[in-house]
């Protein structure tokens, strides 16, 4: 084991050369309106973006979607802005599981929930991508097990592309960071696109312009 490590590394070190890395790639991408680009990109990959003027209209949109889904059981990450919305009061007919607060098994609940709700750490305009991080109150299964994932976040989370995202990266990474760019899909049977293999079948992002 340690012998293997030594062997491999010493073979590699024998070939070590002084080759400089090229200077960091600077993004060439530029968009007039990040939110509009995000909406266009996510729509193109069968995601469902909604752009709303403020948090209150975003919450209304969320309500419409939950009604349309006929959602009875919803799991929700404990994070802003969701934690400010008083979900249980707004939609008392729904059985809520708030991560880290509700009793009962998170995993079991998520496996049978109608939808999972989260915010996002960032959103990438170029590709219509949502970035989510694990952490206290932030479950991985809540956004993965249910057939629908709904994310709600302000437009100031938007960044141009992957390069601007990594360039602005600060601090340590969480145990899990996931970039989501649409609903789960496959083309493994005769190259025919089918939506919703293992991950959510619907991926809905509600962006709101901060006031």
């Amino acid at each position: 084991m340690t012998q293997t490590r030594t062997n491999i590394l010493s073979r590699l070190k024998m070939q070590q050369r002084d080759t400089a890395m090229p200077p960091m790639w600077q993004t060439q991408q530029g968009f007039d309106d990040l939110a509009e680009q995000f909406v266009a990109a996510l729509t193109a990959v069968h995601g469902e973006p909604h752009l709303t003027p403020n948090l209150e209209t975003a919450a209304q949109k969320l309500g419409e979607i939950l009604t349309e889904l006929g959602a009875k059981r919803v799991v929700c990450n404990d994070e802003v802005p969701l934690s400010d919305l008083n979900l249980a009061e707004r939609w008392p007919a729904i059985q809520w599981h708030i991560v880290g607060q509700s009793t009962g098994d998170l995993r079991d609940f998520s496996a049978t929930a109608d939808a999972g709700l989260s915010s996002g750490a960032a959103a990438i305009a170029e590709t219509g991508t949502l970035v989510i991080r694990s952490g206290p109150g932030k479950s991985r299964v809540a956004t993965l097990f249910p057939p629908v994932h709904i994310a709600l976040l302000p437009t100031n989370c938007l960044t141009t592309d992957l390069f601007t995202f990594t360039a602005s990266r600060t601090g340590d990474l969480p145990a899990n960071m996931t970039f989501v760019s649409g609903p789960s899909k496959t083309a493994d049977i005769e190259q025919t696109m089918a939506i919703g293999v293992h991950g959510p079948k619907r991926f809905i992002v509600i962006l709101y312009r901060e006031t």
Binding site: L106, I124, P174, A175, N176, M177, S181, S184
Partner: peptide, 20 residues
């Protein structure tokens, strides 16, 4: 332009993580 899911794993679940 990007695959649907890009998962970045940096160690096992942290103490305060609800799952992983």
């Amino acid at each position: 332009p990007m695959s649907i899911y890009t998962t970045v794993v940096t160690g096992p679940r942290r103490e305060a993580d609800p799952d992983g």
